[in-house]
């Protein structure tokens, strides 16, 4: 992978020295020094692990059942053991204790948090995936083909004014309404969050494309007769992707917050399916009797959102040389 492997055989050409680092190496170099961002990345790695094992062990191989109701064991604090005389053996928690306590129905909060971690993460990633695809498409189109006329207005005007209109909706209100109109399901929530958060990406990509369009390598590509799709996706998109990556990382954090906010208001993923937002919303009523029901999911959301923000900041610094050393 080292750039030096591409070192030219002609030793005499002193002005043709290869760069000391490829952009990727340089990025790693800077990112690794950012301790906060590395911490964030580790937390995210753990979260991905939790989400995958959450999906596996609460649905496919049920080791932790989030839906078992054990009324004799309701409101047990974290780490307490079940009252094994009254609970049927198959309903006992796997580890012999309730790691994160139980809720008002005696359900295992740890199992519910595990299930919720998958929901939060998948909503975050898929919603941002949708918004990035739309953003890159529209922004690229507006930036590259912007001068084409469609009747009396240019494509650029059309796309960017539509973006402006969408930006004028306070997003949370829009999402709330659409989710309330549609039947509640996790997929609708992902799609709606994705469809209402592409505007920033569109603006970034358009701005990048406007400058990239005039770059020598694009002109050269055109002169070589490369198909436009190849110029755009192979050469321009990779060069425009840095700001998109940063905003996407922070976008995942926003999407997770939005989903838990919706669940908190009761418009999110519907029970019995557990999400961090609805565990927290249920727990709010028992904030004195069973504070763990409220604090565990809240802390989890805070830590995850913080981790995404830290990684996003780290990426921004590492990808943009202008910001370094501030």
């Amino acid at each position: 992978m080292s750039a030096r492997t591409t070192k030219q055989t002609d030793e005499s050409a002193e002005n043709d020295l290869p760069p000391l680092e490829t952009p990727w190496e340089e990025f790693l170099h800077v990112f690794k020094k950012d301790r906060l961002a590395i911490t964030g990345a580790v937390v995210l790695g753990l979260l991905v692990l939790a989400a995958i094992s959450g999906k596996t062990f609460t649905e496919w191989i049920v080791l932790f059942d989030p839906e078992v109701v054990r009324l004799p064991d309701k409101f047990l604090p974290p780490l307490s053991s079940p009252s094994s005389e009254v609970i049927p053996e198959q309903d006992l928690p796997l580890l012999g204790i309730y790691l994160m306590g139980t809720d008002e129905l005696g359900r295992d909060v740890f199992a519910r948090m595990l299930q919720g971690s998958f929901v939060s993460l998948s909503i975050g990633f898929i919603a941002v995936g949708i918004s990035v695809i739309i953003g890159v498409m529209l922004g690229g189109f507006a930036g590259y083909y912007g001068n084409l006329k469609l009747g009396i207005i240019t494509i650029d005007t059309l796309i960017m004014r539509f973006t402006d209109v969408m930006l004028c909706f306070p997003t949370f209100f829009l999402i709330l309404t659409v989710v309330a109109l549609l039947p509640p399901s996790i997929y609708n929530i992902m799609i709606v969050i994705g469809l209402t958060s592409w505007m920033g990406t569109t603006r970034f990509v358009r701005a990048e494309f406007l400058t990239l369009r005039e770059q020598d390598y694009v002109v050269a590509g055109k002169a070589l007769g490369l198909p436009e799709s190849r110029i755009i996706f192979r050469h321009m998109v990779p060069n425009a992707i840095a700001p998109v990556l940063v905003s996407a990382t922070i976008g995942v954090a926003t999407a997770i917050l939005t989903e838990s906010g919706l669940s908190f208001l009761g418009f999110g993923v519907q029970p019995p399916y557990a999400t961090w937002g609805n565990i927290l919303a249920d727990g709010k009523g028992f904030i004195f009797d069973a504070p763990w029901l409220f604090f565990i999911p809240g802390l989890a959301i805070l830590v995850v959102v913080l981790a995404f923000n830290l990684v996003g900041e780290g990426l921004r610094e590492a990808l943009n040389p202008k910001l370094r050393g501030r």
Partner: peptide, 11 residues
Amino acid sequence: ALLGVSIPNFW
């Protein structure tokens, strides 16, 4: 500031 943007207001 970072904590402020990350803390959910419903919490």
